[in-house]
Design a protein around this nucleic acid. Structure first.
Length: 885
RNA sequence: AGGCACGUAGCUCAGUGGGAGAGCACUUCCCUGACACGGAAGGGGUCGGCGGUUCAAUCCCGCCCGUGCCUACCA
């Protein structure tokens, strides 16, 4: 029973139905025992706390297009879905929940809290998965993974222990980025720098045993409590005699040395710098060089600790205000300048981070990075577009050791046990009950968890069952492609490369396609806090998933920014509707048609049939090529213009005479071509428009042997061979039709009015072509009387247009306005005159004639000839017209 | 500060070493039996500025102006 297509395309009616069918039937399931070549993609796992935004929509639409295309192209496709546990973000969500109950996580205790997080995840986590399904994402949903799953956690532990055993994981006490709100260390990448309007305070530090002051400039006056030196440049003669002396640190009355260090810029401020080794990355280095004291003045929440003397207990901003006030009172504040500098913020909560001394776990990444660099160098992994390789190298070459420990509760707990007796650390795959050194049972596990990116780095193989040796790994690793935005090139792509190479000995993916980011009108990322988001699900409701997908596909090529306009989405909604209605037209005319296994070559194909088949072949080749090169926008635009401007605007119109006519055989042939082209077109469009193509495909007559269009093959061969000469003649006929329409339009001949047309052909061949296409001209140009010949007699008074080798004459008797014809000709002559001038000039340039390749010359000469001829005809015509006035 | 992009029709953006493209918007005409979410015909751009390479530059190179992003230890 074939479904009928209702009159207007209404996406909501079919999208839900088809997705449910596909999923229930297991159409997306990847079979690891398949003998087909594999194509695999792992999804960039969205945060389990996340809701679908434009970035996800774009990212996953592109992946889905690739997967559906490859699936139809004969590959066994695995698109591996899942979510990321997103340590801080998830912990924050549950902490907020607790807060509404008037509790905090410390009351619950770690175990209960983690349990609570799991409960949250069961109940409301991962809603983004269902949102992805609304877009039509053809992931193998049966395989959905979560980074905290048992298997993935085992992978994390295996990797951590191996890296530790290989000496690539170590602990160290150094300055890290600390979020005083999240109470955890952050990696360098997790700190966002944002220019902030601030002040530069100039403070006077009295030099001991002198009446001199040393003026130091700082953006963070509160850190002076932890100063342990003042530094000047060794060659700064202003201060040379002070080097080695001391200053008396105001407010705390600590005597600190004046040291010389090349780091100091003589030109900046006063040329003297306060040194706070425990609270500034540069000062930390200077402190080490000069063996200074490291005085930590803050606690984990950013309050002044007991080292801050009378300022103890003050929050860092309050401490700043008080210290500035106190300096002012003492007459030690020289001045305050307005100053802009980049302040580091926590990427999760936007709190200003503190450089903070603490003991953390690090991965030594240099050797891992070297392999990852090599893999891109040798082309084992290709980054597309290639310009991103530079960025990748840049970062990889300057990579710093990766701080992987986080002081939160939600995440993979580090498998290290401290011995309270001998102080030894035991790192182990299995839980530890006794110290491996002294065998004491007095051991306790590290409380820190790992950076979620640590588990994400394993995603391409951990999701396939590693460290077990699974068939999935065997079949689908390395993955074929990774599709992602450039914003996580460092966070994720680079780290997956390192881990994949280290633990699988093979790159995790053969190609990385980096797409644009969806930004707001100011070029910033869309974010809820800015209120500039467009909700993809609202778009899907309004325009349908297919139209939305088409829009994203067409936008995919745009450099780095995508500005979504709903107008444009509306345009593609219209496109889907156009396809829908063209299909309705076809179905109306295929009611008595049963597709049989006919070879089109056996049928008497009309010129229009050959033409559309030829154009189909072209579009098909272009689309396949575009997708191979990740040129999604090209694929979208080729299919758009083929569907609308060739299939609908021309072929359907050209087919009507046969479909409505009395010639049963001609009708049958046209039906066959109409059916085959539409059916092939639906397959070509399916990766971008999965829903509507499936619906129409099922409404088509006949049985195509598979349950879904997604199991049909993607067109890679011409439907049939076409005769180039016939196609070219058809295009000539179309040009003549356009010429007649042009005159009709410009002279405002009413569309309903039938006219007489004379075609004066340059040669018998052209005449033959016109005679073959006569009927098309009659119908599409609304011509009643058509005279065709070589050197035929011209009507006494006629409007003249030139279409290639055909002079198109329309007797003015039938028309109205001589003045309008004069104007039209004038306009046309101007255009052609420009061409003539252009090519005459070009071809009279001796250097051009001497140097240009012969083909170019030949082409230009032909163009000049044609233009001159056309000009001549039009001018003669104009002369005649003028005599009539 | 360095790096990477971008600046093309009113708007959003494709594109190429050989006479400038799309969608939307705009103008004129049409509710012709798939579609007014439609049809037909039009108008509109010294391809940011200035130089250079070339027979030929919107495209390659240099400089400048403007915009954006990323990285960076100027307190």
């Amino acid at each position: 029973m074939k479904p009928e297509l209702f009159k207007d395309y209404e996406p909501a009616k079919i999208e839900e139905k088809w997705f449910a069918t596909w999923e229930q039937r297991g159409d997306f399931h990847a079979n690891e025992q398949s003998t087909k070549p594999h194509y695999s993609i792992v999804i960039p796992p969205p945060n389990v706390t996340g809701v679908l935004h434009m970035g996800h929509a774009l990212n996953n639409t592109l992946q889905d297009i690739l997967c559906r295309w490859k699936r139809m192209s004969g590959y066994e496709v695995l698109w591996m879905p899942g979510t990321d546990h997103a340590g801080i973000a998830t912990q924050n969500v549950v902490e907020k929940q607790l807060a509404t109950e008037g509790k905090d996580r410390h009351e619950l205790g770690r175990e209960a809290f983690v349990e609570r997080v799991w409960k949250w995840r069961e109940e409301s986590g991962g809603q983004i998965i269902n949102q992805l399904k609304r877009l039509g994402a053809s992931c193998d949903w049966e395989r959905e993974r979560f980074t905290m799953d048992e298997g993935l956690s085992e992978a994390v532990r295996e990797v951590f222990v191996t890296l530790y055993e290989d000496g690539l994981i170590y602990r160290d006490n150094r300055l890290i980025n600390w979020c005083p709100r999240c109470h955890t260390a952050l990696s360098d990448l997790e700190v966002e720098h944002d220019d902030k309007q601030g002040s530069l305070w100039h403070l006077r530090y009295p030099v001991k045993d002198s009446d001199r002051y040393l003026v130091v400039a700082t953006t963070r006056p509160e850190t002076m409590l932890g100063d342990s030196a003042v530094a000047v440049h060794p060659e700064d003669e202003r201060y040379s005699e002070l080097i080695g002396k001391t200053v008396l640190l105001p407010l705390v009355n600590r005597e600190i040395p004046i040291v010389a260090d090349e780091y100091v810029d003589k030109e900046f401020g006063s040329g003297a710098v306060k040194i706070t080794p425990a609270h500034d990355f540069n000062d930390f280095e200077i402190g080490k060089r000069h063996d200074l004291e490291f005085i930590n003045i803050l606690d984990e929440s950013g309050f002044i600790n007991e080292n801050g003397g009378s300022y103890v207990g003050l929050e860092r901003n309050a401490a700043r205000a008080k210290i500035v006030a106190d300096f002012t009172e003492l007459g030690l504040l020289e001045k305050i300048d307005a100053y802009t500098n980049a302040v580091g913020e926590c990427y999760r909560c936007k709190t200003i981070v503190e450089p903070y001394m603490s003991k953390q776990w690090y991965v030594a990444v240099k050797s891992l990075a070297a392999e990852a660099i090599k893999a891109v160098d040798t082309g084992e992994t290709k980054i597309i577009p290639q310009q991103w390789e530079k960025t990748y190298y840049e970062w990889m070459n300057n990579i710093q050791d990766w701080c992987v420990s986080r002081q939160i509760w939600w995440g993979h707990r580090i498998p290290a046990w401290f011995c309270d007796d001998c102080g030894e650390i035991t790192v182990s795959r299995d839980n530890v009950a006794a110290c491996h050194k002294c065998n004491s049972s007095n051991v306790r596990q590290e409380t820190d968890v790992l950076d979620p990116w640590f588990s994400s780095a394993l995603w391409p193989f951990s999701t396939m069952g590693w460290p077990e040796k699974t068939q999935a790994l065997e079949k689908f690793y390395p993955t074929s492609c990774l599709v992602t935005g450039f914003d996580i090139l460092f966070f994720w792509v680079a780290r997956m490369m390192m881990m994949g190479l280290k633990f699988r000995g093979e790159v995790p993916f053969k190609e990385v396609y980096i797409h644009a980011l969806v930004r707001d009108e100011n070029g910033h990322k869309m974010s809820k806090s800015k209120g500039n988001v467009i909700d993809p699900l609202v778009i899907v409701d309004q325009y349908g998933a297919d139209a939305f997908r088409y829009t994203l596909c067409a936008f995919a090529a745009m450099g780095r920014d995508i500005k979504l306009s709903t107008e444009r989405i509306g345009g593609y909604r219209n496109f889907v509707n156009k396809l829908w209605n063209a299909s309705r037209f076809a179905l109306m005319n295929l009611k008595d048609f049963e597709p049989a296994q006919v070879e089109l070559t056996d049928l008497p194909l009309s010129p229009a049939d050959q033409w559309i088949l030829h154009r189909f072949t072209y579009a098909m080749e272009e689309v396949n090529q575009s997708l191979t090169k990740y040129k999604f926008n090209d694929a979208a635009s080729i299919l758009y213009s083929f569907t609308w401007h060739e299939f609908c605007d021309w072929y359907i119109e050209l087919s009507k005479d046969n479909l409505y006519g009395d010639d049963a055989e001609a009708r049958k042939v046209t039906q066959t071509v109409l059916y085959q082209v539409l059916e092939g077109l639906l397959r070509l469009l399916h990766p971008i428009l999965p829903f509507v193509t499936e619906e129409i495909w099922h409404a088509l007559p006949g049985d195509r042997g598979v349950d879904s269009i997604m199991q049909a093959s993607y067109p890679t061969n011409a439907i049939t061979v076409t005769d180039t000469a016939v196609v070219e003649d058809m295009e000539r006929v179309m040009e003549v039709i356009r010429a007649i329409r042009n005159v009709r339009g410009e002279l405002e001949v009413p569309p309903g009015k039938k006219i007489k047309v004379v075609l004066d052909c340059k040669s018998a061949d052209v005449e033959q072509a016109m005679n073959v296409g006569k009927q098309y001209i009659h119908t599409l140009a609304r011509v009643e009387e058509l005279e065709v010949g070589v050197s035929v007699e011209h009507p006494a008074q006629a409007s003249t247009q030139v279409a290639g080798d055909v002079e198109v004459l329309i007797p003015l008797a039938d028309l109205i306005n001589v003045a309008e014809e004069e104007a039209r000709l004038g306009k046309e002559i101007d255009k052609v005159q420009k061409d003539v001038t252009f090519f005459t000039k070009k071809l009279s340039n001796e250097k051009f004639v001497a140097n240009a390749p012969p083909q170019v010359l030949e082409k230009d000469r032909a163009k000049l000839g044609a233009a001159e001829e056309k000009l001549e005809i039009l001018e003669q015509s104009l002369k005649k017209i003028l005599t009539m006035k």
